[in-house]
């Protein structure tokens, strides 16, 4: 076991990990931050997306030791200290951007990364950016609408394709 230290949601954390310990495992099992979901474990679904040094990554496809010293942001750090939802989370609630909710942590973290890069994305840019986030309820339209709303844009009536 090796001790690994990093900053998670602004808090200095450390824990003992094996070489094979994934960042997702470290977050969930060492730190108890179970908001980061592991959907597929094969890098396909994006439920485990967190930010490492500001970049969206799949935490199930990165070893904990690779994040040593990094600044990590997870879904738990998105709401305010008083529990108030941030703009993206509130928009997901307002526009019913979740059904079962399993993919939601990854969707919100991907949306946050997108809006940081591109504050006013088009619908097509949103859909393109969410390519690596799978919603098996297929609730994509409302997710896209929520992100349009979170970016302060008019929300289109998205037609079923």
């Amino acid at each position: 076991m090796t001790e690994v230290k990093m900053t998670v949601n602004g808090r200095e954390v450390s824990g003992d990990v094996e070489g094979r310990t994934l960042l997702s495992t470290f977050l969930r099992e060492n730190l108890g931050l179970t908001g980061t979901h592991v959907g597929c474990d094969t890098s396909q679904c994006g439920a485990c997306v967190v930010h490492v040094n500001g970049k969206a990554v799949k935490s199930c496809t990165m070893f904990a030791q690779e994040a040593a010293g990094a600044d990590v942001a997870t879904i738990e750090g998105q709401a305010g200290a008083d529990g108030s939802l941030n703009t993206i989370q509130q928009a997901f609630q307002d526009y019913h951007g979740l059904q079962c909710g399993f993919c939601t942590p990854g969707m919100v973290m991907s949306a946050a990364a997108l809006l940081k890069e591109n504050p006013k994305p088009t619908e097509a840019e949103i859909r393109n950016y969410l390519e690596g986030n799978i919603c098996r309820c297929t609730g994509y339209h409302n997710i896209v609408r929520a992100i349009m709303a979170a970016s302060g844009q008019d929300v289109p009536a998205v037609a079923a394709e």
Partner: peptide, 9 residues
Amino acid sequence: IGDPAVRNR
């Protein structure tokens, strides 16, 4: 290549 999260790694 891949998707945004894959491209970041």
